[in-house]
Design a protein around this nucleic acid. Structure first.
Lengths: 233, 233
DNA sequence: TGTATTTTATTTGTCGACAGAATCCGGCCG
DNA sequence: CGGCCGGATTCTGTCGACAAATAAAATACA
């Protein structure tokens, strides 16, 4: 059962949809609402103390991003993660890692570097604190900041969506850490920052590729493990 | 003023939103609703003889795709084409042309080739008929079919959105033809099909790049022309 | 006559209600 | 005992209405 979080914050007119959207999005990406969970409009309406109309509009928006699936005349559910489609996902993710990092090396400003460094600091702290949730969230922001430095809104938009989808995957498989991989990620991030700062496009591309491959391989291994476990049952 | 198209088709329950969505989307992509047009919910509700609720949900969906922009407490308008951002657009479009065509060469099935050839036939016919609208629409479907043959849902999704956005651009600048470029596109399409059929990935990539550059350059030239005209006024 | 301010009107965001669809449940029949 | 059918219930999709917010109009004032 979900927590009995009856929210009754007074909100200004027009912020309702945005509010519901963010609440649901966070719950979905943090797996507080696991894939497949039905989303009851009435229940949500009561919990957030508002009518069903803004909730439906938020759901439409989430459906547009693929985070929920609307079954006609039936309940909308949190979208499943399609494991058969994961190779495609990894492929697309790697590509976006590369092009955004390349463009960042090309177009970054000192302000961009400042923002990126700040997030890298957050990431290092999360690793030191062994806080998986923070690591996942900050890692996302870190790469989004690099993408932003590339100044291509189409890439940043696509990449953000891919990273969000990835947050769910990481949440599933990275709930606990007992290896030193995170530290390695910190180092790889440092190298990427250095390449971006040096405007070394080729090296940025190379490092981004490595970094992406690193993550993809790790995930594939974890998933394969998981698969085996399921089959053994 | 828009045409007095009072639609009163009897629709089944649950198809309302979908219907409004498609009507609006078509009108926007065909520039029947030019960028900047305000969208009056009441007016639309009366024209399609339904309540405002499904219309609002369709608008939320369109906003999610960036085709309309919702000004808080004010009218929603058809999104403008951001000409300053066009270099980014061209960059992203070229990249997606390349990766989708590459993957098509890798994964195409005979069925894929059949579908692609059929669309290429449609395209050739549209060119022969000098039908700009059909050319734009079929061209989109042609490349979407190639992307589909690549079997990467993330790429096909991204690419489709880029191609749709491009439809508006092409509509603006390709309303009339007086050069033989379209014929050249037919030939380039043929070459791409051949490379995809031969599973020649390198060549597919190369041809896709050329094809994209071709279109991008043409558009840039037309836009530059247009800019100059505006400045002269 | 032009500008500032109040009044009116239009339009959005939200609400509660209702009807159609689907699910659940119990009874009936094989 | 199990499966099919019908009624009751729950939930979605749509509707009309209302109030906040904005834009337009009208009025007052310099």
């Amino acid at each position: 059962m979900a927590k009995d979080t009856t929210v009754r914050t007074e909100r200004k007119r027009g912020e309702g949809v945005q509010f519901v959207y963010q609440v649901l999005r966070d719950d979905i990406l943090n797996l507080a609402l696991p894939p497949g969970s039905p989303i009851d409009e009435n229940q949500l309406a009561e919990r957030l103390s508002m009518s069903r109309t803004p909730i439906r509009e938020a759901l439409v928006r989430l459906a547009g991003e693929g985070l929920v699936t609307t079954l006609p005349n039936r309940s909308t559910v949190v979208s499943n993660i399609d494991f058969l489609d994961l190779p495609s996902y990894f492929d697309a993710l790697t590509l976006m890692y590369r092009v955004t990092t390349r463009l960042a090396a090309e177009n970054r400003t000192p302000q961009d570097l400042g923002r990126i460094r700040a997030l890298q600091g957050d990431f290092a702290r999360a690793v030191a604190a062994q806080d998986a949730a923070a690591m996942i969230s900050v890692n996302r922001d870190f790469h989004a900041a690099i993408a932003a430095a590339g100044r291509n809104s189409y890439y940043t938009g696509m990449f953000s969506r891919l990273l969000d989808e990835g947050r769910r995957l990481l949440r599933i498989y990275y709930s606990s850490f007992n290896d030193q991989l995170p530290r390695r990620y910190v180092e790889e991030h440092e190298d990427i920052i250095a390449a971006v700062e040096a405007r070394d496009i080729a090296r940025a591309d190379q490092l981004a590729t490595q970094h992406a491959d690193q993550i993809v391989q790790k995930l594939q291994r974890l998933i394969a493990q998981d698969r085996r476990r399921h089959i053994e049952l």
